[in-house]
Simulated assay, not measured.
Amino acid sequence: MSDITRGYGRIRRRETHASRSTSAVVVAIVLIAALAWLVVEIVLAAAGQQPLLLSPAGMVEGIAALGGVPVGWLWGAGAVLAVLGLVLLGLGLGRGRRPRHVLPNDRAVVVVDDEVIASALVRAAADADGIDPDRAVSSISRRTAVVRVTPTSGVPVQRDRIAEALGERLQQWGLAPSLRSRVQIQKAKVGA
């Protein structure tokens, strides 16, 4: 039985966390290609053959000639490299979580997308106060569900009733990680 629950844990993690393998593979391929090209150029230079693109001596001359390049070009290249470095750093250190939550179940792993949860909470809010579902919008973060209700002018909205219904629904589902609900009443719109 512990092997099954361990397997469920792996499935749960795989379905709720984003993989970074694609970006790692792309970076590895680019680095391997650059190093392979550099090795080929060095071997061709050692054998006295024509370079594919640039000989090692030409590379050294190019680096030495960077002092004559306009400063604007150097700043631009530095900015591009800095942005690329920040993107790679963000990919490596980012949260990597998918917008999903897990429903408790003894026999399987049930993963629910946050958009489905948001839609169900809008329906629960609409049913709790008798409002049109088109008058409510929900957004889900990792730990909080926010339902924004826009009442029709002249029709009061019972914030407490909606909040209680949302709390009961979230408690009934028992999502992991658990969600807290918040209700926001927007300014009333004229019309039905």
Results as ranks from 00 to 15, higher is better:
P70E: 05
A124Y: 01
S19I: 12
G85L: 06
R169T: 05
A163Y: 01
L53Y: 05
V27P: 04
I63K: 06
G85N: 10
I117H: 03
I32N: 02
A118V: 06
P56G: 02
V112S: 06
S139I: 11
Q172T: 11
N105E: 11
T5N: 05
I185T: 00
G94A: 15
V30P: 04
S23K: 13
G167Y: 02
A24G: 05
A18Q: 13
V26F: 09
L35I: 03
P104R: 07
S153E: 09
R180D: 10
A125S: 08
S2L: 15
A192P: 03
D129I: 02
L44R: 07
V25M: 14
A125T: 01
V146K: 03
L53D: 04
V149P: 00
G9R: 09
R98T: 14
L166T: 01
R10L: 15
A33M: 11
A136N: 00
S141Q: 14
L166D: 00
A64L: 06
S19Y: 07
G174L: 08
V155Y: 09
V122S: 05
A82H: 09
V26M: 13
T22K: 15
I11E: 12
V87N: 15
A33E: 10
R100T: 13
A18F: 07
W37F: 06
G62V: 03
R98H: 12
G90H: 13
A57T: 15
D134H: 08
I131F: 01
I162E: 00
E15Q: 13
P151L: 01
L103K: 11
M1H: 14
A33L: 10
G174I: 07
L179F: 04
D132E: 12
E61D: 14
L121W: 03
G67S: 13
A45W: 01
G191E: 09
W73E: 11
V183P: 00
K189I: 10
V122T: 02
G130C: 07
D3E: 14
I29K: 03
V27S: 10
P151R: 00
G62Y: 04
E115R: 15
L91Y: 15
G58Q: 03
I4M: 15
V149M: 01
K187S: 09
V146D: 03
S2P: 12
V40Y: 03
D134F: 04
V83C: 13
R148S: 02
D134M: 10
A128P: 02
L170H: 03
A24M: 10
A124C: 14
L66P: 03
Q158K: 14
P51K: 06
R159V: 05
R10V: 08
R97G: 13
R107W: 14
I131Q: 00
T144G: 06
R161Y: 04
D129Q: 06
Q186G: 01
A34D: 04
G9N: 06
A47M: 15
S2W: 15
L31G: 09
D132P: 08
M59Q: 04
A36K: 04
V157C: 05
L38M: 08
D132M: 06
A36Y: 03
R100H: 14
L38W: 07
L81I: 10
A77I: 08
